[in-house]
Simulated scan of single mutants.
Amino acid sequence: MELLEGTVLAGESFEPIRGRVVVEDGQIEAIEEVPTDSTDIVLPAFVNAHTHLGDSVAKDAAAGLSLEKAVAPPNSLKHRRLAAADRPDLVAAMRRTLRFMRETATASCLDFRESGPAGARALREAARPLDIDPFIFGSGDASVLDVADGFGASGANDDDFAEQRAASRERGAPFAIHAGEPDPTDIGPALELDPDLLVHMVHAEPDHLDRVAEASIPIAVCPRANTVLDVGRPPVRALLDHTTVALGTDNVMLNPPSMFREMAYTAKQFDVTDREVLRMATTAGAEIVGLDGGVIAPGRRAALTVLDGDSNNLTGSTDPVRAVVRRATALDVDRVLC
């Protein structure tokens, strides 16, 4: 049994409770209000709702390039670098990035893995010795579902994904697709595929939002990547008003996959509350693919982060949720329990 004491951000509302979390056999047994001298902040470990970990072989190589030249399939710099990478180097690079994510309090990520079944297997190998579990959205033809957890489509303007959608539905695996990143033209066709997850939706229009709300389709947004690629700003407030919204960091070649950085940027640039941002970084991503984490509640998996509330950075903070979302960094992480 383990006892994690301090200010616990409990439940889906992240209500600060002075006390402790009781953990046994990897599960949260109880949250107890008890006297404590601990200045620690205990919160759910992050779930990064959109990554491209294969980009780890080409960090910062696309700086200053447009979306099309940087990452668009099939001939962008990203895809040329992926094609040129040998498997041991790819696995090693992805493993280093997964370690960084673990060090920055991420318990899981929803990764769009290129290169078909071989790409999915490479990511499984990279994650095998680590305490972080990527949920893999595979690519290519439907056979990737023999290896991956779901299917991740690049975009409805890139190809016809009807076969992969049908195969995902038959297997009960989630189907995700990029939509509305450079412009709105691929959003309608993406919605026709009845996806389980939409990624980006930067250029979502009112009729798109109504369809998303009617079908209860969650959305992963990646504000920092959208800024770097100069494709626009996702309408985060409008998206939250229509559906579940989760936070992702997108391409590793563009930005480090730090949820601390993504939260702080989102909180300061968009019309959102700190609690909404923290939910986007934890509970929402877990809910999208059915992970048993993302919230501190009895009976849930103990995927938890402990921040040092007495660090040089956090000491004197007046609100623990605001401190986590707007101020905390990897240097404040005392422990990650997964």
Rank of each mutant, 00 (worst) to 15 (best):
R211Y: 01
P189H: 06
L209G: 06
D241L: 04
A213D: 00
A246W: 11
T244K: 11
P206N: 12
D194R: 15
A190Y: 04
P234F: 06
D196I: 00
G232N: 14
D241H: 02
A190Q: 01
I219K: 02
G248C: 13
L240I: 07
V228T: 15
L229M: 13
H208N: 01
A190K: 04
S216C: 07
A220Y: 05
L197Y: 06
V245F: 11
P234M: 10
L197D: 01
D196P: 05
V212T: 06
P195A: 03
H203V: 10
T243A: 08
P223L: 14
L193K: 05
D241C: 03
V202R: 05
T249M: 06
H200M: 10
D207E: 15
M201H: 00
R224L: 05
G188L: 07
T249N: 14
E192R: 15
V221Q: 11
P218S: 06
L229S: 06
H242G: 02
P223C: 10
V202A: 03
R211W: 00
T244S: 11
N226S: 14
A246Y: 12
D230N: 15
H208I: 02
L247K: 13
M201L: 15
L198Y: 04
P234L: 09
H203S: 10
I217L: 07
T244R: 14
L209H: 05
M201R: 03
P189W: 03
G232A: 14
A238R: 13
P235L: 10
D194A: 14
V245R: 10
P223T: 05
L229R: 09
A190M: 02
D210K: 11
A220V: 08
R237F: 00
D207N: 08
T244C: 09
P235A: 13
H208E: 01
V199W: 08
P206L: 09
D210R: 13
V231M: 07
E192V: 11
S216I: 00
